[in-house]
Structures are given as structure tokens and as C-alpha cells.
């Protein structure tokens, strides 16, 4: 984390939910609330299937796109520039591409509020060109707010998976590799002791 950022923002630690159900809910909300503007060009629909999400469910999201196509948005860069003055960033890597990672993205999504003048602003990114997609700034009752927090939580869990889809595979392989190395190193150490013990004359 860059020191500038660490000094300015204390983010609440985001607990990623790695379960298939949470990610599936996240995709669903994402497709409804974010995909109109944001692409996920490095994520393919088949990756969702490989992760364990039901193919039928995926079919409801991908529309005419094939299972092999990337989850790109239909919004063209030109249209985006015209509407927002900015192209919404591709979100495939967003969790890896911001200081603070998932905690940042969660705090950003839920950081919208109404200023006393009735304008929407964001605690983390006051000048953001993105509208309050989850409409948390206008949600007043606590039930609605906590529902939105839940949605944001699922989206960020999904985006965390999207940015690092091999994390689970990597870590489970990692346990074997480290375990193997521990055994190997202990053996090597014993051989070393044995070889060197011949020296003591």
C-alpha cells in the first residue's frame, strides 16, 4: 500500500466471502447494476461455470453472447465519454488495481451520501463521475441500507474472485508444496548432520 494512501484513509477491513453462492449473488447484482457501464474483459462466462456456477443461471446473464465470450459491456467508449466525460474502467482487475484492494472498492461503493445541498458525493472519491449505482445515498431506512450493504458485499466478493480467480487453487497447491519442502528440508538437514559428523576428528 502506498504510504500516501495509508496515511489518509483508514479502511475497514473487508472480509471476502469466497463461497459460490455469494459470488453467484454478486454476479447477479453486478449484471443488473454495473454491467451496463463496466466491462470485465478478462473474465469469460465459462470461467463462472468452471468456478461452479450453474450453466442455466449463466445463460440468464449472457443473453446472446456465447459461453466463451468475455463479459464485456455494451456501452461504447464514445458513448461513455459523452455521458460521463470518462470511460468507466474495466473491473476485471479493479480489486488488485487499487490501494486497499477489496476494502477500498467496498468503501467506495457504499461511500455515497447526500450533501446538505442535496448533491450526491462520495467519501472516498468526492469528484467521482460514477453515479450512486446502488442508490445508498438516498436509502434512509436501516433495512434498505443493510440490504444495499449486503449487495455491495456480494459484488466485491465477486470482483475479488474475478481479479484473482486461481487464489483457491493456488493456496491448496501451496499447502502441498510447502509441506513437501518441510519434509525434504528436514531430511536434508539430517543428512547434513550425518555427513558432517564424520568430520569431527
Amino acid at each position: 500500500m502506498s504510504p500516501t494512501f495509508a496515511a489518509e484513509n483508514k479502511l475497514e477491513k473487508f472480509q471476502t466471502d469466497t463461497s459460490v453462492i455469494a459470488v453467484e449473488r454478486g454476479v447477479d447484482t453486478f449484471m443488473n447494476a454495473c454491467h451496463g457501464c463496466h466491462s470485465l474483459k478478462y473474465v469469460h462466462y465459462r470461467d463462472l461455470a468452471r468456478f461452479g456456477i450453474d450453466k442455466e443461471r449463466i445463460a440468464t446473464w449472457r443473453g446472446d453472447s456465447t459461453l466463451d465470450s468475455a463479459m464485456t459491456s455494451l456501452l461504447s467508449d464514445e458513448a461513455a465519454l459523452q455521458s460521463f466525460g470518462k470511460v468507466p474502467p474495466d473491473l476485471s482487475m479493479i480489486v488488485m488495481a487499487r490501494e486497499g484492494g477489496a476494502s477500498y472498492v467496498f468503501a467506495y461503493l457504499t461511500g455515497y451520501y447526500l450533501t446538505p445541498e442535496g448533491m450526491t458525493s462520495n467519501h472516498l472519491f468526492p469528484l467521482t463521475k460514477m453515479p450512486d449505482a446502488l442508490e445508498i445515498s438516498t436509502a434512509t431506512d436501516s433495512v434498505k441500507r443493510s440490504e444495499i450493504m449486503e449487495q455491495a458485499h456480494d459484488i466485491v466478493s465477486f470482483l475479488s474472485w474475478a481479479a484473482d480467480p486461481q487464489k483457491a487453487e493456488r493456496e491448496s497447491l501451496g499447502y502441498y508444496v510447502i509441506g513437501y519442502l518441510i519434509i525434504l528440508t528436514v531430511l536434508l538437514y539430517n543428512v547434513k548432520l550425518q555427513v558432517w559428523s564424520k568430520l569431527k576428528t
Binding site: 493456488r170 493456496e171 497447491l173 501451496g174 508444496v177 510447502i178 519442502l181 518441510i182 528440508t185
Partner: peptide, 10 residues
């Protein structure tokens, strides 16, 4: 290698 792969995998 233990230290190295600890970083690589985790």
C-alpha cells in the same frame, strides 16, 4: 525455497 514458495503461493 520454503520462504520463496510461501510468497509465491500465499
Amino acid at each position: 525455497l520454503m520462504a520463496y514458495f510461501l510468497v509465491v503461493f500465499f
